[in-house]
Write a protein that binds this DNA or RNA. Structure first.
Lengths: 140, 140
DNA sequence: TTCATAAGGTTACTTTTAGTAACTTACTCT
DNA sequence: AGAGTAAGTTACTAAAAGTAACCTTATGAA
């Protein structure tokens, strides 16, 4: 990321605001709501975690790890923290031994997952086309 | 990623197939259409590129670079190649000097961007909530 | 005649992020 | 006493992304 002065940012924001009325994903990250939201929750692992939590009302750490096939403890743990901090999921720990921790979507998270599902449905329907394009292009 | 045998993969695929009827984002990457599609086109930079191309029917390299604020030549070039290979965008080069190259969405790409827009609209509408959650959580 | 500029990249190098595998904790069951 | 368990953490390595300089081919200016 380049460094820019606040002045430059202001001018850019105003200019873009004028050009485009209704949606913002074109400012530097610090001034762009869409980029800001994307930066924490739109990576692949987070997406898979959220989708799984959309299927099961509640999942525990190790179960989640099985479903989100291939994720490591470290990354799962990191992503869960961020998703919790941003309010998509809720973590509930029980003082048992061994400890039991439950993760579930918040209302907010559920509303996000609904949109996400539309996207993944598209992906599922269109994946053959992507594969065909890729093959044709030769980059396999 | 762990390494698994084909046999293991088969068994897993069948088991999951049985549990869930209609959507696939839960297999290992090599057998999961959703994960496969996501892996090339759902990163943040690609998303921003596609969204911009959804706004402007045609954009040239340097223009695109200005809009996708903060992207480097290297990454822009890489992402454009992959998006082209997967069939989302079309590249057209003119033998002028200096060379002129135009990028635009394919029909296919446009259909993807339509879904993407629904997601980013949600993000824009809900970004204040995300920020509020983040603040409350204290992870700033 | 040499220099600067232009568009659309590429290359070598550094920094950041992600992945891997071993370890931790605290209690219970054998 | 030793093994097992859930939910992580930690140290280390590999991969990806960011940075800045460079390339090409031609035109127009100094």
């Amino acid at each position: 990321m380049e460094t820019v002065t606040d002045n430059q940012k202001d001018r850019m924001a105003k200019k873009l605001e004028k050009m485009f009325g209704h949606i913002d994903y074109r400012h530097p990250p610090e001034l762009c709501p869409v980029r800001d939201v994307m930066s924490t929750a739109s990576d692949q692992w987070s997406t898979l975690i959220l989708l799984w939590l959309g299927y099961f009302p509640v999942l525990r750490f190790n179960k989640l790890k099985k479903f989100v096939y291939g994720i490591s403890n470290k990354v799962l743990s990191q992503r869960l923290k961020v998703l919790e901090a941003d309010g998509y999921i809720v973590r509930k720990a029980y003082a048992e031994v061994p400890i039991r921790v439950e993760y579930r979507l918040s209302e907010f998270g559920r509303s996000y997952v609904e949109r996400l599902l539309e996207l993944t449905e598209w992906m599922q329907q269109n994946s053959p086309k992507v594969l065909a394009n890729r093959e044709k292009y030769g980059l396999n």
